[in-house]
Amino acid sequence: MGTWEWPLIVFTVLSQISIGIIVGLLGLDCRNQLKEKLFKQGVVVSGILLMIALLASLFHLGHPEAAYRAITHLGSSWLSREILFFILTFVGWLYLLWLSFHPAGKLRSSLLITSVLGLLGIISSAMIYVLPRVPAWNNVAPVFFFILTAGLLGALALVILGGKELQPEQKKSLLNWALGCIIVSIFMFVLYASTIKVNAQGAATVQFLLSSPLFWLRAGLGWLAPLILLLIGLKSQKVFTASTLYLVFALVGVGEILGRALFYVSAVGIHISALF
């Protein structure tokens, strides 16, 4: 069984929200020209989150002062690649920040490039955990989980950030997107649990999850409650109040953080099963 990896939980969830926001901005921009204020707000918040995330990741290291070396094994280490992509994403973000103060025409392509780099960063993050030693992780699930977190929390964060700047259409499509992410997440989890069950370690992971109250809390708060709130809200065509939006975001946020914690805690590696 794994451990509570707080620095990694904070790092992965926050970096995924950050990149989710950039991707969301790109999506909005593709439909209608982004409002300057929303763009600026989105970029600033995304950047703050990314910086907190990168800072948090340092706490995982025994020797954060030597973190710069982590980029030296691009040939085979996904961790090196992750760091590289996040650094590039950060550079992209710096340009976006510059753009948000000096509006110019290349906004969309810059968003696109930053998004692609960010998504590659997220995929690299996930690939770190694709380890033959840990059957529960040794599949595409980590990649899906991480991208879904980005999509879900990124969209909800944008809805809240956008506030009045967002047209109802934009808001609705973002909320629809979030709803879709939740449904896909639930579906992915069921698929995940049923596929990893085939070996002893995977079965142990599933058993741990299903018998953990935290998992059911995660499912209730992070999936079920927001699912119902979003379904009701979207169906009734009513405008979501700000407090409902905050509630949904908070529920999903808590759910994703718990989910990520459980991702680490529930990982069962192949071990020497002798007495010692």
Partner: peptide, 20 residues
């Protein structure tokens, strides 16, 4: 001397032989 203590090798080794 190069190690920065990221412990990824601990996760990856099926024999738990790298030790923190």
């Amino acid at each position: 001397d190069r190690c920065i203590g990221c412990r990824l090798c601990l996760m990856a080794c099926p024999y738990d032989r790298p030790q923190f």
